[in-house]
Simulated scan of single mutants.
Amino acid sequence: MPDRPTLVLLPGALQASASLTPLASALAPFADVLLLDLPGHGGQIIPDVLRSWEIAAAVVTELDRRNVARAHVFGYSLGGYVGLLLARAHPERVAGVFAHATKLAWTPEVAAREVRGLNPDRILEKAPAFAATLQQAHTPQDWQLLTRRVADLLTELGENPAVTDSVLRALKVPVQLSLGDQDRMVSLEETVAAYRALARGRLLVLPGVTHPFEHAVQERLAPEIHAFLQAAEEVHA
């Protein structure tokens, strides 16, 4: 009986790993699933600065702690970005990357637009239910401080994107990019451009799906991730 693949699930910015529980449950029959929080998220101590490469390094540290030599990575939004960085920096540790709704075309203008929605005072005023969700997800840490750190991270990505065309072209592992055709943050054009840069890329577009990774979308995507795992495992067999 072949060993079960290990699958790391990485949530998006300002999400706790618990938000991916439906996906983890759906994939548990097919893989050893690890739900990991990004640094500063899910109650972890918030770093003075969040940087994409350092987030990727933190994931490697956690894999070391759990004695995981090699794993597939699924990442939603920023989690997918981190997964691609992991595959570039540590190709021996990553068997494949499935990135869903991951923004790959960063510019200062794009970052400024995204950061406008990350003002804690405005969130409290305009979206108190979202503020309460953030507080619950990241307790006992200060969600407002985390939100500011994430805003700084996005600003840095706008100035100095970490996943560039050259990074994508250098990836040797299987990579699948997916997005919803109604995603207002991630465009089909930028995702197709990234897919074309990949040596071993796959592309999936989900009709009627927006950016938020709701339970129904997770359940819908689970069979696609399972199929990707099977294909990637055959490559490594």
Rank of each mutant, 00 (worst) to 15 (best):
A105Y: 09
E92N: 05
K172L: 12
H90S: 09
T164V: 00
A112R: 14
L177T: 00
G80R: 01
V209G: 00
A222I: 02
L188I: 06
P108A: 08
A231F: 07
T139K: 15
P128Y: 10
S17P: 05
A170Y: 11
Q176P: 07
E159T: 14
F30S: 12
A16Q: 10
G79D: 01
L50Q: 04
T191N: 02
N67M: 13
R66F: 04
H215D: 05
L50S: 07
R4K: 15
L20H: 03
Q15E: 11
L86D: 04
D48P: 11
L84K: 01
H41R: 05
A24R: 13
P108C: 05
P174Q: 11
T61C: 12
E234A: 15
W53C: 10
R149Y: 06
E189D: 15
L124E: 14
D183W: 00
F30V: 04
T147H: 08
L14A: 08
L27F: 04
P5V: 06
L104W: 04
T6E: 08
A197S: 15
A194H: 04
E189G: 10
A162V: 12
R149A: 11
D37I: 05
L168R: 06
L50F: 14
L203C: 05
R202T: 05
P207W: 02
F213H: 03
R88V: 00
T102I: 01
V60Y: 02
L84C: 03
A16L: 04
E54D: 08
W53L: 14
D165W: 11
N119Q: 10
T107D: 03
E54S: 07
H215V: 12
P120E: 06
P39I: 08
L7W: 05
L146V: 04
E109A: 13
E62L: 10
N119P: 04
S25A: 14
E189C: 13
W53A: 15
E233V: 12
R148V: 07
L134W: 09
G208M: 11
W53M: 12
R169H: 12
